[in-house]
Amino acid sequence: MSSPADLKYSKSHEWFRCEGNTITIGITKHAADELTDITFVEPKPVGTVISAGGAIGEVESVKTTSDVFSACGGTVVEVNVAAVADPSLVNSDPYGCGWLVKLAVADPTPLKDLLNAAAYDSANAGH
């Protein structure tokens, strides 16, 4: 299955949607499938300053706990309370209702170095 073409992807399986100076971050379908059923989501609270490469929160599944990282520094302006209340949204709709945080960023250019959908999919082909 192909990942959405309008997003950018990290090798550590986060996706980024850039709208002006706001980026929305979530984990990819591949990551959600690998983690299996997600049971707990804890984004960093609104107002937290995240450095580039820093953790924006964590997700926990039946199997394991993982940090989720942002390729871009910024400040948390919104967290997905629906996903906190129902972590299974991250499994069922990772690119939609299962997003994790929105960051206000001064400079979204680091996202340009990330993978596009085709590159991300081919990196994970056969997995």
């Binding site: 299996t36 059923d37 049971t39 039946v62 299974s88 499994n91």
Partner: peptide
């Protein structure tokens, strides 16, 4: 098989 979709 670890799961066929959802462990839960």
């Amino acid at each position: 098989p670890l799961t066929y979709g959802s462990i839960i």
